[in-house]
Write a protein that binds this DNA or RNA. Structure first.
Lengths: 192, 192
DNA sequence: CGTTCAGTTGACTAAGGTCAATTCCCGTGG
DNA sequence: CCACGGGAATTGACCTTAGTCAACTGAACG
């Protein structure tokens, strides 16, 4: 039942049966309905989720405006990582965009796994490195390219599924622009 | 001689004497003169540096323009982390802003430490998490705040030493704006 | 059908960039 | 000690990009 998660974990670091048994008893399933929240700004996030079906977004709020920084689909972890590791209230919210099925476990359990098993620790390192690489890419995208270039990069990246599955106003938000601007960019791009 | 590095490492994870001895024989010292490079765009970065004295910056090049994303001072690691972990050519360059003294070791050695010791692996996880947290903060800064707000945040952050030790045109670059704009922002701020 | 919400389009605004002239600061050589 | 040269910072005039506001279209759904 939780094999999908185990397989995904093993893409980062192989996990023995004994290791797996440290985590498995603490896994549970959860369904978050469309527009429901997994994590909420101002609250400490104590759980890790693994999306088995559905989609979510991860956003900050500023002056009442939401700024989406990430989307999640099947086969990815979802959590307010910063809040988990610092234990402080999170600065972001995570919302289901469709009815979403998750496998969930407490971060505290993962932390124990880290302490008790070198393999789990290695997994932890790998996932943090993977995260850092993704953030670096996102950060440089914002710093180096303008809105139109960012849109074209999205078109040509392995993130195509964002374009296919996410409504345009959220894509605009993700690109750091307004829906109006994205519409114009698409318009200009189509004319060439 | 390398105690400064050991102490810094132990802020992330305690390291036994035996662990330390895995790394120590591979440490060396290096001085990079002002404007010299530690890592170069297009080349694989295979080393980790630890700044004991001096300052460096970390920048990308786009259309012949340099975009500075980080500064380094005493007591920090410096490397093209992404290039190290992926083994691919780096997208960024790292330059000494003043004559800079470093302790240097090969990433390959660190990788071996990770494999052989749970403590080192924990250090690796911690450092990656620390890095991810920093990148997240930087990314959200760019996405959520305009140039003036970013400048004020820098004023009120623990990164004050950037303002004290870095020339203004590089600070502007770091904030994602031109020196001209930064000058105007400072002018406006002073009038209030 | 009418309501609602996403997307498009037009007119105007604002933030920041570009270009160029000027001033300031500082090191070097006469 | 002073004069000069060069890079950093400032300032003014103008331009470009994206944001704002508002009207309109169109598809989805009760």
């Amino acid at each position: 039942m939780f094999q999908q998660l185990k397989q995904y974990i093993e893409r980062f670091s192989p996990i023995s049966q004994a290791d797996w048994e440290m985590l498995e008893p603490h896994l549970s399933q959860r369904v978050i309905p469309k527009n429901g929240l997994f994590s909420k700004e101002g609250k400490v996030c104590r759980e890790i989720g693994f999306v088995t079906d559905g989609s979510m977004r991860h956003y900050y709020t500023k002056d009442g405006e939401e700024k989406t920084t990430y989307f999640y689909f099947e086969n990815s972890f979802v959590t307010d990582y910063i809040s988990c590791i610092t234990g402080k209230p999170g600065a972001l919210s995570i919302e289901a965009l469709t009815d979403t099925r998750l496998i969930v476990f407490p971060y505290a359990v993962l932390k124990q796994c880290y302490e008790q098993s070198h393999s789990w620790e290695k997994f932890g390192r790998s996932i943090a490195e993977y995260l850092a690489a993704g953030l670096e890419e996102r950060m440089t995208g914002l710093l180096l390219y303008d809105a139109e270039e960012r849109y074209r990069q999205l078109l040509n990246s392995n993130k195509r599924k964002i374009l296919e599955r996410i409504p345009q106003h959220l894509i605009a938000n993700y690109l750091g622009i307004t829906p109006v601007s994205l519409s114009r960019i698409r318009n200009r791009a189509a004319k060439k």
